[in-house]
Computed example of a mutant assay.
Amino acid sequence: MGNPLQDQLLKAGLVNKKQASKVKQEQYVQTKKKKKGKSVRKNDRKPISQAEVARAAEVARNKQISRKQAEERQQHEQQAQIKQLVIQNRVERDEKNGQAYHFALGKKIHRIFIAEEMIDRLCQGQLGIVQLADSFEVVPAKVARQVAERDKGAVISLREPGPGDDEIW
């Protein structure tokens, strides 16, 4: 007794006896291979040549290089955005008549000379200090937060208002 679907296809004339026996033989081989624990696809694959291995390694290396270049390009774009933000929004300092404002960066204490009202605004969290290359610039707090989104290490001093800072002057 065979497969009822096969019998119907044979009676309808859609397949001949040779095609039906071929399909039956393939099904038998597949069931035997599955019982032995062998994968049908494993046996159907061609052995991998050294050239294919080299090509695959080259493709992986190229992907890694392009990923690294994309990261570098993104970092460069972020630094350019930071520079543009700081230059466009920096607050002019009073180098000649200003007071020294000291802040720590790593293990060193740095100072910049700014006007007295700017010191008050720095303490209130309205202004922040950002490092741009080897110089320090004073920018509005909003700009300092935008810089911090791109590079947290560039923001040197930014006081966040606390719960007790809600007093109105």
Results as ranks from 00 to 15, higher is better:
1 M>L: 14
1 M>I: 10
3 N>P: 06
4 P>Y: 07
8 Q>M: 12
12 A>G: 00
13 G>D: 11
14 L>M: 10
18 K>D: 05
22 K>F: 03
23 V>R: 14
31 T>S: 10
32 K>C: 13
35 K>L: 12
38 K>M: 14
39 S>G: 10
40 V>K: 03
44 D>K: 14
56 A>V: 06
60 A>I: 12
64 Q>E: 09
66 S>Q: 15
72 E>R: 08
73 R>D: 04
74 Q>N: 08
74 Q>H: 09
75 Q>I: 15
78 Q>W: 13
78 Q>K: 15
79 Q>M: 09
81 Q>W: 03
88 Q>E: 03
95 E>P: 00
96 K>V: 12
97 N>V: 14
97 N>I: 13
100 A>D: 12
100 A>K: 06
103 F>L: 04
104 A>M: 11
107 K>D: 01
109 I>H: 05
111 R>P: 00
114 I>T: 13
114 I>Q: 05
116 E>D: 00
122 L>H: 06
125 G>H: 01
131 Q>E: 09
132 L>I: 11
135 S>A: 15
136 F>R: 03
136 F>I: 03
139 V>D: 01
142 K>Y: 03
142 K>S: 08
149 E>T: 09
153 G>Q: 11
156 I>N: 00
159 R>Q: 01
159 R>H: 02
160 E>G: 02
161 P>D: 01
161 P>L: 02
161 P>G: 01
167 E>G: 01
169 W>T: 07
